[in-house]
Design a protein around this nucleic acid. Structure first.
Length: 588
DNA sequence: GCCGTTTTCGGCCCGACTGTTTTCAGTCG
């Protein structure tokens, strides 16, 4: 896709224009870049289909932008960008990744010291040639030095399920402070994005009784105490900043945390603002402007009078909108849908009645079937499905037909035992079978037919050519014993891209065969949000599973549920919101 | 440079914090 390449160039042009102090144009280029990244169609295809006219129908793309895009598609270059780069031949995208370095400082560093890239910057820091520069100084040089160090250690954005438990530890510490009256996670963590850049907390500090109610100093002392506590947390390696209402730190684990403290009357507006996304905020602030109002983190204002701010619901209502769930706030159509009052009634974690993709110690899993079942009961589930790997996967000690039938008997006994004790819980018996290269399943059909359900997935020869891979998948999905297609695209967040698949075709096959698509809650997070939305639109049913290999991983369901919500999924799109009997009836 | 149920001209989201140029530019979210 050329979209990302062109977007990258537009971002760069925006930076160059910022350096030249050109007004408003940088914003226009940034918006065009964001827009290109957001659309799912390839600009090259759009151009072939409808020429410049169709390009200009894209949000933020006008005459000049379509000029640039046409030029890039034809020549592979954009002249304006080449000219800028000639004047300032530096690795801009790389250098501005250093915390505290922006385009203007980068320009000075090039002009004064000839710094073109990270390597040059490191050398200059070592020689202490930065501090004497006009506009820089000792502290700036030290910040650059530390920024470089952190950049080297950085693994980029973290998987949500890796970072949320760490964030919640800090959350609990802050929540326990007597000075803290209210606290919430904000940012991409609250929106449930699959990867997280930094962790944001929003806090209301308890008013200090010493001062009069409503006085500006009312909460100042407690606010300061919370700030002091925050920057002194264990694991804090660097304090980027600490003021009266806002602090930012870098953690030893390699990510940043931000804390913002606001008065109670602004809590809702601040939560709305701090949750983002930025694109959603810009959209909501524009609605405010259209109504002659002003929206900031302090509230929604008519002139200097605050008309909403205490809760998010209040802010949205005053803008003429229903409440929009954080997972939807990406400026991907949620505002228009909200205006029409047709937002989806999103599935919730508490709607989930069981988990069908769980492994036991019969194969490579860690815990026994009974222990997995007990953990599922503790989560309030009505059932758990044991779906161990099958024989082709030797590394996971996959089960063959004989062992599967033996496992069936074992599960039958467990269920009989529950019944005797009056425990209303059921263990379902499935397997996670392998789709072999020719599309057949590695377990005989007559055995598959004896299980409660069958999950099938691609676990080998991942790098097949598209047509061949699709034939393979199609054959498996058409198998009347295959109920669920596991981790359909094969991607692993931050590690592996999706296979060469045709998702539209998968949707059509799923629709025609009644095959359920899996939303896998582990580091796969597969399906991703956009695909969930498309599946829902096609009426294809999905299931949220954890792919647990030990009991603790059952808790990953939270992330799969968030992923489903980001894909606009409702309760009736997700089959494991059904009781066991109905769920089994909904399968092939 | 883009955009428009108040506009084809005149706006563009909004604010915190730091370091240094001592009054505000640069950076960040």
């Amino acid at each position: 896709m050329k979209n990302q390449e062109i977007a990258k160039i537009f971002y760069e042009i925006a930076r160059f224009l910022q350096i030249d102090k050109v007004a408003f144009k940088p914003y226009a280029y940034e918006r065009a870049a964001v827009s290109l990244e957001a659309i799912k169609d390839d600009v090259a295809q759009i151009y072939i289909k409808g020429g410049r006219k169709m390009l200009e129908e894209i949000e933020g793309i006008g005459k000049a932008m379509s000029d640039h895009i046409e030029e890039y598609l034809k020549t592979g270059k954009i002249k304006l960008y080449e000219e800028f780069k000639k004047k300032l031949p530096v690795q801009m995208d790389e250098l501005v990744k250093v915390e505290g370095l922006g385009p203007r400082k980068v320009k000075v560093l090039y002009q004064e010291l000839g710094i073109k890239n990270i390597k040059d910057l490191e050398k200059a820091v070592k020689k202490h040639t930065i501090a004497p520069l006009f506009g820089f100084g000792e502290k700036t040089e030290k910040n650059i030095m530390q920024g470089l160090e952190f950049l080297k250690q950085s693994k980029g954005r973290s998987l949500i399920s890796d970072i949320k438990p760490v964030a919640m530890e800090v959350y609990k510490k802050l929540e326990n402070l007597k000075e803290v009256q209210k606290i919430s996670l904000a940012g991409s963590l609250r929106r449930g994005k699959e990867t997280i850049g930094d962790v944001d907390f929003l806090v209301v500090s308890r008013p200090d009784k010493k001062y009069g109610r409503g006085s500006p100093r009312e909460a100042a002392k407690n606010t300061q105490k919370i700030m002091d506590f925050f920057v002194a947390l264990p694991g804090v390696k660097k304090i980027w900043g600490k003021g009266g209402t806002k602090a930012s730190v870098h953690m030893a684990d390699g990510f940043d945390m931000d804390l913002r403290i606001v008065p109670e009357k602004s809590y809702g507006a601040a939560l709305q603002y701090f949750t983002g996304s930025q694109a959603h905020n810009i959209a909501t602030r524009k609605i405010a402007i259209d109504k002659g109002l002003k929206l900031s983190e302090y509230g929604l204002f008519k002139g200097s009078k605050i008309i909403a701010g205490k809760t998010e619901e209040e802010v949205y209502r005053a803008l003429g909108l229903p409440y929009i769930a954080p997972e939807l706030r990406e400026d991907q159509g949620e505002i228009d849908t909200a205006l029409k009052n047709t937002l989806p009634d999103l599935v919730e974690l508490k709607d989930i009645k069981g988990d069908l993709h769980c492994h036991s110690n019969w194969n490579g899993g860690e815990n026994s079937i009974e222990v997995m079942a007990r953990s599922a009961m503790d989560l309030g589930y009505e059932y758990i499905g044991i779906s161990d790997h099958t024989k082709f996967l030797k590394i996971e000690n996959g089960l063959d037909e004989k062992k599967l039938l033996k496992q069936k008997e074992a599960i039958k006994k467990i269920n009989e035992n529950y019944k005797k004790k009056g425990i209303k819980f059921r263990v379902l018996h499935g397997c996670e079978a392998n789709i072999l290269n020719d599309g057949s399943i590695d377990i005989k059909d007559e055995v598959l037919a004896q299980l409660d359900y069958v999950i099938a997935g691609v676990h080998s020869t991942l790098k097949m050519e598209k047509g061949e891979l699709m034939e393979r998948i199609e054959k498996a999905m058409k198998n009347p014993n295959v109920d669920i297609f596991a981790h359909p695209t094969g991607r692993i967040v931050g590690q592996r891209d999706e296979y060469q698949i045709d998702f539209d075709k998968i949707l059509q096959i799923a629709k025609n065969t009644g095959t359920i698509l899996e939303i896998n809650s582990s580091s796969r997070l597969d399906l991703r949000d956009l695909y969930i939305r498309r599946a829902k639109a096609e009426g294809v049913k999905m299931i949220i599973n954890t792919d647990s290999h030990k009991k603790e991983q059952l808790l990953l369901m939270e992330y799969g549920a968030m992923q489903a919500r980001r894909g606009w999924a409702e309760k009736n799109d997700i089959i494991n919101t059904l009781p066991a009997e109905e769920l089994l009836k909904s399968l092939k």
